[in-house]
């Protein structure tokens, strides 16, 4: 129903085939006319395939969990905090607001009008984030959507849905899960998934540790 034509089953899906053919035709025309440089396309693709991803967010969160002063700096200026950890980021420094999730308040982020996301810090968003089911539903029935995605929130947790409708971007700072006392920063970072940075999951220590 939604966005599942993105390139799957290329040879048999006429829409994927048309997208591929026309993208290739467009690129060759724009190169001929001097509008785009293929080497710069390569560079942007490499940036997102190799350099920038959710691991940036995992590292920021793990440091914030073990260092309260860093946590304050992260909330005050996420880009300066990213520089402090020497993270690879894109040049587009869209303002980012860091939202803290607690037992009392659970924040979750969406962009109903397109798919705005803090890409220069966290990489490109997943397909589900860009899909009509998520964009249409999470502003109306966030608990139901989160439950379907595997996160069953207690009834007394307030849910705040953030529709990023302008040029401000949002990143979740999840709560540190119980059972992680004494963990190293690197090990803590492994608990922080991309889904937790969007607010559709919470970091958890599995039963087997």
């Amino acid at each position: 129903m939604s966005d599942h034509h993105d390139g799957h089953d290329h040879d048999h899906d006429p829409i994927a085939r048309r997208n591929a053919l026309r993208a290739e035709a467009l690129e060759s025309l724009l190169i001929e006319r001097g509008i785009v440089d293929p080497a710069l396309i390569d560079a942007v693709v490499a940036r997102f395939e190799q350099d920038i991803g959710p691991l940036n967010g995992s590292k920021l969160v793990a440091r914030a969990w073990i260092d309260p002063e860093f946590r304050t700096r992260l909330i005050a200026d996420p880009w300066a905090a990213a520089e402090e950890l020497a993270l690879a980021t894109g040049p587009e420094r869209t303002p980012i607001v860091v939202l803290e999730n607690t037992a009392a308040t659970h924040n979750v982020v969406v962009c109903t009008l397109c798919s705005c996301y803090p890409s220069s810090l966290l990489g490109l968003p997943p397909t589900w984030y860009k899909s009509p089911p998520y964009r249409s539903r999470v502003v109306r029935e966030p608990r139901a959507v989160l439950r379907e995605m595997g996160l069953d929130l207690p009834a007394d947790t307030e849910v705040r849905v953030w529709d990023s409708s302008a040029e401000v971007r949002y990143m979740i700072l999840p709560a540190r899960p119980a059972g992680t006392d004494g963990w190293s920063e690197d090990r803590l970072a492994t608990l922080v998934t991309r889904d937790a940075l969007i607010g559709v999951a919470r970091p958890e220590v599995s039963a087997r540790g």
Partner: peptide
């Protein structure tokens, strides 16, 4: 990316 053309479109 799920296919090469997607990445080319992003770069363009």
């Amino acid at each position: 990316f799920h296919a090469r053309w997607e990445s080319r479109v992003l770069g363009m």
